[in-house]
Design a protein around this nucleic acid. Structure first.
Lengths: 195, 195
DNA sequence: CCAGGTGATGTCATTGACTGACATCACCGA
DNA sequence: TCGGTGATGTCAGTCAATGACATCACCTGG
């Protein structure tokens, strides 16, 4: 636990959570989720396993750390939509607000992360419940806008679907395509389906 | 490991998996999922913990044992639908086919099971992935019927949604309401929404 | 400048989920 | 009767997760 840097920068190297996130992604990508132990992640991050669990509830959560923030951001964008916006317009605003999170820098991380998640059942479970939680939050947000319950649920579900599909497409797209464009394209596809 | 019955009925009491299922449900309902250990479940079923894991992949799976069978049944019903049935008609047939699994006898078990699942995040995760798998299977079934990919995905998603909502309503309904009736009612609600 | 509080971490011990390897032994078929 | 088979038990081990307690740089009030 003693490196030159640590002694120079205060008691501990700052941003343990960030180091743990990076270490986890690197190891998951390299050896797979099952082939990686929490102790190894902690080692690479220069902390102990106990500290890992102080920052993340479990071994899966380290890959979903940003999701509460993303969700909060979407809910805020939903609430910030004009009062006279239709439910779907408000949801669209929320989905488009995710663009601020997924710039070109995050794309590479997102790709590796997605690869690990899709190849690990345990992580797919976690992702599903995150999406379900997001759906619930958006539904609640719509209800607060005075949207009827049935409509709110459907709009939220649709919005999350659009986000999921767009995210996948964005990951697969060339490096210079911004996610906002992909979302717009997905919305256009949706419009074509319902028409 | 030696009871009178065992000695009389062959080397082991038959249906260890069934006993484990019942023991697990009883203990989960009584002490909660987290408050129950696999060793306790195994004890109550008259086997060892090692045997538990020979029958079920993990502590969660014991509550989802019948799901592959249900899924297979639905996919078969989907395939058995008339060739000229619309995608949604075929999916409806699949959903209605679940009625054979959920009779009055299963209702009580289903209620207790649902109570445990909704109050345990880990189990909700597992349920979500089961539903996702079901959706994929139904989508594949529709594709084999020659349905267009986009339509197939949407129809499957809708069908699973109808199943989920109906199942919840059935559990909450009086004891003499068959699930088939609830499903029909849900379908009617859906028709009203889209109209 | 010092004492005490605070927060992030380390250390240790423990529980419990899950797995692999090997042993057992009633049953069944040749 | 004998050997194979299958379901189980036993044992040892790994690893995720948690609680209790110690440490110690840093900050703040006096």
């Amino acid at each position: 636990m003693t490196s030159d840097k640590i002694d120079r920068m205060g008691r501990w190297e700052p941003d343990a959570a960030g180091r743990l996130r990076e270490a986890a992604m690197a190891l998951y990508a390299e050896r797979g989720y099952d082939g990686t132990t929490v102790a190894e992640i902690a080692d690479r991050a220069g902390v102990t396993a106990r500290t890992f669990f102080r920052h993340f509830a479990d071994k899966r959560e380290v890959l979903f750390a940003g999701s509460e923030q993303l969700e909060r951001h979407m809910v805020e964008a939903l609430a910030a939509a004009p009062a006279d916006a239709s439910p779907m317009e408000a949801v669209t605003a929320a989905v488009l607000a995710t663009a601020e999170f997924f710039d070109d820098i995050r794309r590479d991380y997102s790709r590796r992360r997605a690869a690990v998640i899709t190849s690990t059942p345990e992580l797919r479970e976690r992702e599903l419940i995150k999406m379900a939680t997001l759906t619930t939050s958006l539904t609640d947000g719509l209800l607060e806008r005075g949207v009827a319950p049935d409509v709110a649920a459907l709009a939220a579900e649709t919005g999350v679907a659009v986000f999921r599909v767009s995210f996948e497409r964005w990951i697969a797209a060339p490096d210079d395509v911004p996610i906002a464009d992909v979302i717009q394209a997905t919305l256009k596809t949706l419009a074509g389906l319902t028409a």
